[in-house]
């Protein structure tokens, strides 16, 4: 079993928390893991990505080869398209549809969504709205983790346990809000699968 995931978004949108949660779950499942991320300058509102690799065998490269990813998991629609050369032709693109507009020339969002929908395997959902509806607007990243969870080859319980570990420091309320967000995202993906 091997799962290579490209996580993408804009600096500050919380892809590191998604990566850390999946990482915790993978360790719980005794899988090999390599997770590479971007620190420094791009974190200031720039495009950021993280390469996350899980396997039951030893992993060599920290970087996913071109066309090798089983999934792109994106918290921002335009950013989901930036890494398409890395997505396997059979891979899934799972993305938030709510744009993060911090540049003057952000493209027409309709056109962005059309590109997403042109892919044979995609799940697109408005994670910002779903997060708001569950009462925790800041958890849209974990809504996206929930939406990706059916494709992850990881038991739901391990991901939930990962959420407890990653957000545990911030208190019980935050943990529960994120667990709820996870469920909401998961439900959307299950219905779309």
């Amino acid at each position: 079993m091997k799962t290579d995931i490209i996580l993408s978004g804009v600096g500050g949108q919380g892809i590191v928390s998604i990566a850390a949660t999946i990482g915790m779950a993978a360790i719980r499942e005794n899988l090999y893991l390599k997770q590479s991320e971007v620190h420094g300058m791009s974190q200031r509102g720039g495009a950021v990505q993280s390469n996350l690799r899980l396997s039951d065998k030893e992993i060599m490269s920290d970087l996913i080869p071109l066309g090798g990813a089983e999934m792109i998991l994106s918290v921002e629609p335009m950013e989901s398209l930036r890494y398409l050369p890395y997505l396997s032709r059979q891979g899934w693109l799972v993305t938030n549809t709510s744009p993060y507009v911090n540049i003057p020339n952000y493209p027409d969002i309709e056109e962005v969504i059309r590109e997403v929908e042109a892919l044979p395997n995609h799940v697109a959902l408005d994670a910002d709205k779903i997060a708001k509806d569950t009462g925790s607007a800041r958890s849209s990243n974990i809504v996206m983790l929930g939406a990706a969870s059916p494709f992850l080859n990881l038991p739901v319980e391990s991901l939930q346990e990962g959420i407890r570990q990653i957000f545990g420091r911030k208190g019980e309320d935050i943990v529960n809000a994120n667990l709820k967000a996870f469920e909401a995202g998961r439900k959307v993906a299950e219905n779309n699968k």
């Binding site: 720039g46 495009a47 080869p65 071109l66 335009m78 050369p85 590109e115």
Partner: peptide
């Protein structure tokens, strides 16, 4: 052979870092 995925669609524009 590198089995590259689909090209980046032209609609995608650069997003450089910026001051907060």
């Amino acid at each position: 052979t590198v089995n590259k995925g689909k090209d980046v669609p032209s609609v995608v524009t650069g997003r450089p870092p910026s001051m907060c």
